[in-house]
Amino acid sequence: MTTAPPVPPPAAGVRATARIHAVADGRGGTALPLLAGEGPLALRRTRGREAEAGVVLVGAMSAPLGGDHLTVRATAGPGARLALASAAATLALPGRAGEPARYDVELDLEDGAAVRWLPEPLVSVRGSDLRVRTRVRLAPTARLLLREEQVLGRHGEQPGLLRSRLTVTRGGRPLLDQELACGPGAPGGWDGPAGLAGHRAVGQLLVVDPAFAQDPPPAAVLGECAAATPLAGPAVLVTALAGDALRLREVLDAACRAYHR
């Protein structure tokens, strides 16, 4: 585990970047020549499956506060296999002056790379204002498993304002671009009959696999509030709404077993 010394927080909030670089080690495994946490973003190496290197993001529990800007940047070189997880849920918390916090995730996958990005849920706490920006760039033969779960408020709590955009390109072409805005201050109707309709947990599971080009999974309705939708490229997106984080995870876990090979 490599952790940079904590940077004293400037008045504007914490700026911290965690960097991960995974490469195929030439012996059928994956090495991590760069594993550098910073500030509240600490990284721990774990045992991955088979040829995979595992990394867990720890200590993200208390961040991001309003005004913070956190970034996780991971690259997987040709043929590298990387599993990224987090030790606990991430709580979006209010800052002192009500300024928004930013959380950026950038994943770059080169040819033949495979990344599983499976963080714990993001909980939007009352009074918080968080902008999440996830950008994934895939080479044409890269494979990706990505899960995002957003929970509106802790138990029985009103949510904060959460804006989360996920942009995935494959071979430079757009594959998926989705932005969700919810909570007080979001554009009108966010919780209405064309919005979350009272659900307090929303999530998606994205599986990108070049094998889907020949054999795309069919669209499937997974209950009243979840569906698996094949995208215009070799990928399937499972979108689910649920009453709480636990039920959301059940749906996404089942989808993961069904679509991730």
Binding site: E179, A181, A220, V221, A227, T229
Partner: peptide, 22 residues
């Protein structure tokens, strides 16, 4: 470039469209 265009989406509208198509 086109990334400047909004990507605002409603998960429920996407899910309900698949339910409807069935």
């Amino acid at each position: 470039g086109p990334e400047a265009l909004p990507a605002a989406s409603s998960p429920l509208l996407e899910i309900a469209a698949e339910v409807h198509a069935d």
